[in-house]
Amino acid sequence: MSNPANNNTYPAYEKVMAARDAAKLTAVDYIRSLFGDSFIELHGDRRFADDKAIVAGLGMLHDTPVTVIGIEKGRNTKERMDRNFGQAHPEGYRKALRLMKQAEKFRRPVLCLVDTSGAYPGIGAEERGQGQAIAENLMEMMTLKTPVLTILIGEGGSGGALALAVADEVWMLENSVYSVISPEGCASILWKDSAKAPQAAEALKMTAQDLFDLGVIERIIRQPKAEDKAMFESLRLLVLRTFEKNAALSDAELIEQRYQRFRKIGTSHIK
């Protein structure tokens, strides 16, 4: 919290800082708290590699087996390097899609936990089709015949976050953000000055409350603490209830609902 611009004038940027706070819980913390010892990690995209920025596997939510896929930033310097700071390569998105398809086959609901500043912008990622990998996830998730729920637990950075967020419902923690571009990137492109990130954060409307008001998310979740057992139990029940509601729909209804969810976003001004 050293940025001089970071005061009450820019509450959105405070949320950005909170979403990036290195001390906050990461995807593996949520997986442990929600699934406990039942979690079994599954690795690899079966094409190129295992991307450690994506942690995925199977776990039990009470009596229900669930496929869980998270973007993991790491909790200390060594872990962060190991996890590429939560910036996935194409193989990460392909691992995610492989496990979503597997979930569809076995009629398991899918829980995605998103925390990334964005898909990795690098030579290898471009060579292996970062754009194609994200595009394929968007297309395939839209018709995945099993319930999908996404929770943003920190940063939701652009296409790299959306690639795990074509879901029946999208929820955000109160201290998470979701945006088409980072406020720094936006400020440097538009105003040639990345120090204007706080203003950009306001303009982009990227807080949970903004996104709720814009009809982009269904629910804002209170920020849990690691040892808050009651909070995690209520989150577990909330997730289960949402899965059950959507599992009761026919495939056609489920897919139509998901299509219409995205179809109507941002159309209020379009005649």
Binding site: S179, A203, L211
Partner: peptide
């Protein structure tokens, strides 16, 4: 903002 990001999902659908 976020509404432009959502067009990626919408068009893909």
């Amino acid at each position: 903002g976020i509404l432009s990001l959502m067009q990626m999902a919408k068009t893909s659908g």
